[in-house]
Structures are given as C-alpha cells and as structure tokens.
Design a protein around this nucleic acid. Sequence first.
DNA 1: CTGCACCTTCCCACAATGGGAAGGTCAACG
DNA 2: CGTTGACCTTCCCATTGTGGGAAGGTGCAG
Lengths: 148, 148
Amino acid sequence: MNISMAAEQSGVSAKMIRYYESIGLIEAADRRDNGYRDYGDTEVAMLQFVRRTRDLGFSLDEVASLLTLWRNRRRSSREVRRLAEKHLADIDARIADMRAVSRTLKRLVHACHGDDRPECPILDDLAATPATTTTKHTRQPRRTRKAK
Amino acid sequence: MNISMAAEQSGVSAKMIRYYESIGLIEAADRRDNGYRDYGDTEVAMLQFVRRTRDLGFSLDEVASLLTLWRNRRRSSREVRRLAEKHLADIDARIADMRAVSRTLKRLVHACHGDDRPECPILDDLAATPATTTTKHTRQPRRTRKAK
DNA sequence: CTGCACCTTCCCACAATGGGAAGGTCAACG
DNA sequence: CGTTGACCTTCCCATTGTGGGAAGGTGCAG
C-alpha cells in the first residue's frame, strides 16, 4: 500500500513516516518501480507501535530503544520496565511542576477582580519586588566568578 | 551595570536578554561608549517580570501581552485575568493529559515482571493490534482508492 | 605588556512537526 | 488519447526557547 494509506492506518502522518525513515528510526521502506514507498501490514504494525509509544510521551530516542527491545526476542523485560519507570518518573515530576504552576495561577486569578479597573494582583505578583528574597546584594569583591 | 550582572540579578541569562531584545520583547538597552549594553534597576525589574511570567509557563507572546498591560496604567484587570485564565485552562488540560499517561504507564510498569524473561506486557500493550479499538476504518475522503 | 574576563555579533543545534514548492506518476473520465 | 487531479518524490523553511561556541573588541590587574 501507498504511504498515505499506511499513514491513515497507523495514525502516523506521511510526513512523519518519511522523517522517521530519514533518521533511521524505522527501516527504509521497500520501493516500487515508480519509486513510491510500499508498505505491508508488518510495517503498519511497526508504525502503530511507534505512534502508541509517542502517545505515551516517549522521546524518539526512547522509541528507538523500545523498538529494538520489541524486535529482540531475547530481551529482558527488566530493561523495558526500567525505561518505562524512568519515563514515568519524568512525567510525574513534570506533572508536579505544572500542578504548582496551576495552583499559583488559580490563586492569582482568584485574587483579580477582572473588571474595568487597572488594579491587578496578577501583575503585582509578577512584578513583586524581591523584598522577600532578602537579596543582600551579591557582593562583587573584585573579580568574583558567578557561582552555579 | 553590564549584561552579566543584569542576568545574575534577574535570573535571565545574558543570552536570553539579548534574544528578548532582538525579537522586540523588551526595548533595546542603552549602550555605553564601548558598545556594551547598560542596565539599571528598572530594566532588571522588567527582566524579573519576564522571568517570573515565563516561570509560570506563559509563552513569549503572552509575556509580551502581559508586559504591555503591566506598563499601561489604563489597562483593565479583566484583560489580564482573561489571559491568565486562558493559560490556566491550557495548563490544566495538559496536566489532565499527562495524568492519563501517568496512569497508563503505572499500570504497565506494574504488570511487567521486570526480570530476565522476555515476556513484557508493556511491549505487548504498545504493540496491541487494534482489535480492541474496533476501528472500522474511517472511510476514504472521496475517490475510494483502497490500494491493494 | 600580558592575560583574562568581560563584551559584541553571528551562526549552529536541539525536538518533533507541519507547510509548501517543484516535479514525476497513475488512473479515471470524457 | 489527453486532461485532470490525487497521489507520490525530495528539499527547504518555520516553529519555540534555549544553549554552545567562534571571531574579534574592551577593560583592568599585575
């Protein structure tokens, strides 16, 4: 089948299929006499695997690893799980960060009248002068290199 | 003060300060005779505003809008709140998506032995043939083609 | 004067995707 | 048979926001 059909059946755009091929994520597809790429059910299944893995937020690098493991009949499930766990930890950390942001935004939105007046706690908060931070002046005793 | 000091005090890297200037997010800094950019407390405060806004996940476009509102003494807080609410909704939607991913990953990780054996529900799930999805296939746009 | 930490501009890269141009191919329809 | 239009191909560009680094100028301590 042609690439657009493979795209439709796998849920991966034709553009992306070509891209995945170009970076070596998937093998180069067979070509027909006219130069068109030709796909079979095996290839479509692989593309579906890639799409599902991407849907779970794995990077293309991770997809590559998972594809290799998938194809390797002598893999250890330990390795697969390790990859998944690492990614899960990453996702959860990002969720935590975003929840903190969400809480802050909710608080700010709540505090703001949202009417014609210019007074706005949201802007006040964003502009908050770091009096809180007690920034006692990063000294500059001559050539002090910045830390961190 | 020099750009590196402004960077240190604002928490925005020198690289980013120049970039923000180049895209017109912030005004071009004054220059000293030697061509060096020169920053004062006002500029640092603006950079801090930008950093805080970025920390809350606003895009640079949104930062630009918020900066304009911040500077405009005749703004309506309604507009600010609308922006914040829109962003909040966006964040919350993304959190929901990621939580769904997290739940799926947790389930998969849980189901996987993670030992030397190759059997792995994680890979099985990623490879799952859409028998479950009962996707009866979206019909073609028109001109049915259904190659081979 | 030397050395070094600054500063400047400019270009490259990243991740993953889409848009679109220029040109070849295939099949249906009149 | 020729036109038409939906395909296909490759190639380049844009995105978002950030960092790396080169090449060259400046300022100051020793």
